[in-house]
Design a protein around this nucleic acid. Structure first.
Length: 381
DNA sequence: CTGTCCCGCCACCCT
DNA sequence: AGGGTGGCGGGACAG
């Protein structure tokens, strides 16, 4: 498999030196920066590392060390990716091979998997398309309801929960991030509502809209999932024009150029420009309190970007990878000259690790973009 | 105050 | 029994 160069690997996160009790203020700037590369974006580097020709397996320890995140975070990524798709051949993205090891099957199975999920949602029939060879899970045993009542635009969480035949969540296994991902996808695929707030989604998925504590926990998990799905272009963050409440809108497997061409203004939807802890922005916009706290202790200037600490990347014409790619996507430019784009907009990080990181991020996007474009062509045919 | 999500404890599961 | 998995919720931080 393609092996990233050592310099491209993120430094493995280390515990606070000489301290048994956790204290963020004692973290070095370097450690703090690496912290920002955790769960919400780790999957992107995961893709950049593994979504390549010739990659057949994924080792959890290997992934954790290369991404510079804890093993625990890799489980989250794996669980979501494993469920975006069907956990048996050939409709899977990731398939457990053995302890610590997964088969990497690629993103090509996603359209089929979504179709099947849609079918399940409408028929409440979770019988897999093909559950014979390679089947490793028994999801069909976990069907919450076999009611044949199809979704009819209900907004009541309980009835929506039942009508979609969502997987029940009674025991540990059934509360998995994977099943939650599937059910979350179902909500978008099988209901008329194009947008959905995570709180509403949590209530529906819980089937119990009256427990604030459970809902809050479920919302936390949905954030984990939504981060992955939105970055994969399945959904996008928006704000409701009236309530300003955050929500997510389903994009499906649209190509980058298609995803934004829809009439946002007609719908009155306000697309969210993610500013929080986003790759590139958080790293370079070091005006955050967290960073200031640390820089007070003793800043490592080699990690600073060229621009002012109090300026966001965009303010100084230094687009984050996210805003760069999103911007191009919004303009519907399908034929990217990635190399020139990268040269033109590349942030001028002083820190070599950050440059490498950016390069990896661009690679991941190239790969993902071309894959989506290919699938589009296939669908057109 | 709400929204977001980092973080790691620890229960459960599998070998 | 011991290590791998991953549910879970406290709490930090941004807006």
């Amino acid at each position: 498999m393609a092996t990233p160069s050592p310099s491209s690997s993120l430094a493995a996160k280390e515990p606070a030196s000489g301290s048994t009790t956790y204290c963020r203020k004692q973290k070095s700037l370097g450690l703090l920066c690496s912290k920002y590369y955790t769960a919400s974006i780790a999957w992107k580097f995961f893709l950049s590392l593994y979504n390549r020709d010739g990659v057949e397996t994924v080792g959890l320890d290997d992934a954790a060390s290369r991404l510079g995140v804890e093993r625990r975070r890799i489980y989250d990524i794996v669980n979501v990716l494993e469920s975006v798709g069907v956990r048996y051949l050939p409709f899977c993205v990731l398939l457990r091979k053995a302890k610590n090891t997964y088969y990497w099957k690629g993103l090509g199975a996603i359209p089929t998997a979504l179709e099947q999920l849609k079918e399940e949602g409408f028929t409440n029939n979770d019988e897999p398309i093909d559950c014979k060879p390679g089947k490793v899970e028994d999801d069909e045993d976990e069907i919450f309801s076999n009611s044949s009542v199809s979704f009819q635009g209900k907004t009541d969480p309980d009835s929506t929960h039942k009508s979609l035949g969502l997987f029940k969540s009674d025991n540990r296994k059934e509360k998995s991030l994977g099943l939650l991902t599937k059910n979350f996808l179902k909500l978008f695929i099988c209901t008329p509502s194009e947008t959905l707030s995570l709180e509403d989604a949590a209530k529906i998925l819980l089937g119990d809209a009256r427990n604030p504590s459970l809902t809050r926990t479920k919302v936390r998990r949905l954030y984990d999932i939504a981060n992955v799905l939105s970055s994969m272009n399945f959904i996008e963050k928006i704000h409701h024009p009236e309530t300003r409440k955050p929500a997510f809108r389903w994009l499906g497997m649209k190509s980058p150029s298609q995803s934004q061409s829809q009439t946002d203004s007609k719908r009155g939807l306000v697309q969210e420009e993610s500013k929080k802890r986003a790759f590139g922005t958080d790293l370079t916009n070091t005006s955050f309190k967290r960073t200031k706290l640390v820089s007070d202790v003793g800043s490592d200037h080699s990690l600073k970007p060229v621009h002012s600490l109090d300026q966001s990347p965009d303010q100084v014409g230094c687009k984050s990878p996210t805003s760069l790619v999103d911007g191009e996507r919004k303009e519907g430019k399908k034929s990217h000259d990635w190399e020139s784009l990268a040269l033109t907009h590349r942030p001028q990080y002083h820190n070599e690790a950050l440059r490498d990181l950016f390069a990896h991020y661009m690679d991941a996007w190239k790969s993902w973009y071309s894959e989506v474009a290919e699938m589009d062509q296939i669908q057109v045919i």
